[in-house]
Design a protein around this nucleic acid. Structure first.
Length: 728
DNA sequence: GCGTGGTCAATACCT
DNA sequence: ACAGGTATTGACCACGCG
């Protein structure tokens, strides 16, 4: 049996360098040939085909020719020439193409515990105590921490000299070569650690010799889409190794969880339970104290660095297995798996079949906009005896039930692939419960979770115009059937005498006193109207529900409260309003006897005498653009100003794209019609020179009462509250 | 010059 | 470079009023 690959790199000469695991847990290198290939939609002029083989492919797809080259040099010379005449599709990176061509996968017979992982963290200092800057000659790397298999190795700067720093950088490269990890992990290591080390290496004309096969690191600007925003970062590739940034993994995780106020290592580590809530036993050093600790309290400095390494490992322990399992499923490398979306991965699986079947590939289709899921709020106010039902894996189930492959999939592999993945998932879901050892159960759990994500993205793939086998009509058919199904369910629940509360896409909430104790009996009564392969699940039971608006509600179960919707749990919301809403909901749901109106009155008093801390008033927003991009778009594109961006401009150094900016509003001066003119960063709060505007924040309390007062049986406050503060 | 009402884009959510 | 749907907010603009 072929050995397991845990490192792969295709050289410029077109040799595939492989690192394979030995039975004893070691690593061996070997090389194999690589015959690169690409699909063409037409035959380029014959003169260009020297040294290449061209095949005609079966089926009606637009890319009906396949070209192979004997070596990469020939191929890379051919590509630009061919592109001038015909359309060319080549799978990149070459390592993915190699894996696909050989139907190989990385880490095939390895568990997550057997892969060699190394955590990296550096500490840096600055001459003047400001934030360390690699471009300043006197700012330096003080220490480089490595941790592999739970063992730390700290490399320390031996003197405040260039020679000593050079030696430190050389020791790092040597230590990495000796430890020879498959994966290099760090928190924000793309934007900070690796970038900093690169700049210092360049300064001393040292190579960044951190890869396998004697190779150097390769840097290039890259961007990652995190929900609605793009994050720019200097990507770093190490031949034969994967570079994994837990800072990005944390943000990817929080897209669905949405529970982290900050993505910094220290805060996240507490959230993930890697460090106790009371932070006992963890050494902390503020940024500006690091250099002093390095000089005067070396033990403390080292303890701090070791805690950073330990927390980084803990984060990757929890967040990386999903991606590790993807790599065992898709012809891709780990680093790609963390940085690329679902389209790339599904395309790779599809194209693997097309390549081996010698079937012509389609052009990605145009996808017209189509309707999505059915959403409706039936009630407003507070309800008791609440039951939640949802359809298990609605869209994948509907896709399988429709059973139609996308229009461009002439080989018919999409639906069988989805079915296979679903069956695998069910198998691993079972194993996650029943496997004999905890390690096997954890691995099965990671596999099933990774398959679930993947299976759910098949529908989205169909509706995406960049997907090679996309099919908007099929995606529209899926959502249409989903809407019909949910509405039929709602009608049936209503017929059973339930009070419908809220419905969204594949699930619904209702109130029913008689069935509250027998949710499965009710489920059985309505399940009859479902098609045979669609399963309805009873997903939860709640004492009370506060229905506000579509996709906005709160649930109480015992003393636990769950909030849903941007109106009730937006992270940017002013803390004082947030607390008021929390109080309101706890009160309405019967969890707490304290009326929010008492808190409201207290806020009014404390605004009047300005004793409410500004931090409670500040709103925060993620910076979607760099301050420069904002300026440019405003000047050239006529985009409106934004208070958050105006606040960001006042900060030095300016916050980076993707960071959160908190700001407050100062009192209105004549001619300041807009908020953005009086926005100030919270970090620059000056109670004397730039106090907050109590009238503005009191008016927000009026708005709040206007919105929620009716749920408390209170009439909206009289207007003119702001006058209290006139002339103050 | 100031408030009002309507439109639009941006953000942050939900499934 | 998976999808569509909803709530909320603030900037901006036209408008009426004085």
């Amino acid at each position: 049996m072929a050995p397991t690959i845990c490192g792969l790199w295709v050289s410029g000469e077109g040799r595939a360098h492989l690192t394979v695991a030995t039975a004893a847990g070691g690593r061996e290198e070997r090389t194999e040939g690589f015959r690169p290939f690409a699909w063409l939609n037409d035959t380029p002029p014959a003169a260009n085909l020297h040294g290449l083989t061209l095949e005609r492919l079966a089926g009606p797809g637009a890319f009906d020719r396949l070209v192979h080259a004997e070596d990469l040099a020939t191929f890379e010379a051919f590509l630009p020439v061919a592109r001038a005449a015909v359309a060319v599709e080549a799978i990149r990176p070459w390592e993915s193409q190699f894996l696909l061509q050989h139907r190989q996968r990385l880490y095939r017979d390895l568990g997550f515990g057997q892969v060699r992982r190394c955590q990296l963290d550096i500490e840096t200092g600055s001459e003047d105590g400001s934030f360390s800057d690699a471009s300043r000659p006197g700012d330096r790397v003080l220490a480089i921490g490595l941790r592999q298999g739970g063992t730390n190795r700290l490399l320390l700067l031996e003197a405040m000299t260039d020679a000593a720093e050079q030696h430190l950088l050389e020791s790092f490269a040597a230590a990495l070569q000796a430890a020879d990890p498959d994966i290099l992990e760090g928190h924000n290591l793309f934007k900070f650690d690796l970038d900093y080390l690169r700049q210092r290496c360049r300064r001393y004309k040292l190579p960044c010799a951190w890869g396998r096969y004697g190779q150097r690191a390769a840097f290039r600007p890259s961007r990652l889409k995190l929900a609605e925003r793009w994050v720019d970062f200097p990507r770093c590739d190490l031949p034969g190794r994967a570079v994994v940034d837990t800072y990005l993994l944390v943000q990817l995780h929080d897209l669905t969880a949405r529970e982290l106020p900050s993505y910094g290592l220290k805060e996240v580590a507490v959230h993930f339970g890697l460090t106790a809530e009371d932070r006992a036993g963890r050494t902390y050093l503020e940024g500006h104290r690091i250099q002093a600790a390095f000089t005067h309290d070396r033990a403390r400095f080292c303890a701090y660095l070791e805690d950073d390494l330990r927390e980084t490992q803990g984060l990757a322990d929890q967040l990386l297995p999903t991606y590790f399992e993807q790599v065992r499923t898709f012809p891709t490398q780990l680093q790609e798996a963390t940085l690329r979306g679902a389209t790339t991965k599904i395309d790779l699986l599809m194209l693997e079949e097309y390549y081996h079947a010698r079937q012509a590939c389609p052009l990605p289709p145009e996808v017209a906009p189509f309707d999505g899921g059915y959403t409706r709020s039936f009630q407003e106010g507070v309800f008791r005896h609440v039951l939640h039902y949802d359809v298990a894996s609605l869209y994948p189930s509907l896709l399988l039930s429709i059973g139609r492959n996308p229009a461009g999939d002439t080989l018919g592999v999409f639906i069988p692939l989805l079915r296979r993945l679903r069956d695998y998932r069910l198998q691993y879901k079972q194993l996650a419960r029943t496997a004999p050892t905890a390690e096997e159960r954890a691995e099965a759990q990671a596999r099933q979770a990774s398959f679930k994500l993947l299976i759910n993205s098949f529908y989205g793939y169909l509706g995406f115009s960049g997907a090679r086998f996309g099919d908007g009509a099929l995606a529209a058919e899926v959502t249409r059937r989903g809407r019909d199904l949910l509405q039929a369910l709602l009608a049936e629940f209503a017929r059973q005498g339930c009070t419908l509360l809220e419905a969204d896409t594949d699930g619904l909430y209702l109130s029913s006193e008689p069935y509250f104790a027998q949710p499965d009996e009710l489920r059985a009564r309505v399940a009859g109207i479902l098609p045979p392969d669609i399963e309805l699940e009873h997903d939860g039971r709640y004492d009370a529900m506060f229905c506000y608006k579509m996709k906005n509600y709160a649930l109480a179960s015992g003393r636990q409260v769950i909030l849903r919707g941007s109106a009730l749990r937006s992270r940017g919301m002013e803390p004082y309003l947030r607390r008021l809403s929390d109080r309101l909901i706890a009160f309405l749901l019967g969890v707490s006897p304290e009326s929010p109106l008492d808190l409201l009155a207290e806020y009014r008093r404390r605004l009047a005498d300005r004793s409410l801390p500004v931090a409670d008033l500040a709103k925060s927003e993620l910076l979607n653009q760099t301050p420069e991009a904002y300026e440019r778009l405003r000047a050239e594109g006529g985009k409106p100003r934004r208070a958050s961006a105006e606040a960001a401009r006042q900060l030095t150094p300016p916050p980076r794209q993707g960071e959160r900016v908190s700001y407050y509003l100062t009192a209105k001066a004549p001619g300041q019609a807009s908020d953005w003119q009086r926005a100030r960063p919270l970090a620059l709060y000056d109670a004397a020179a730039a106090p907050y505007d109590p009238a503005y924040y009191a008016a927000k309390l009026d708005d709040w009462l206007e919105r929620y007062g009716r749920f408390l049986g209170v009439a909206p406050a009289a207007t003119g509250q702001g006058e209290l503060f006139d002339g103050a």
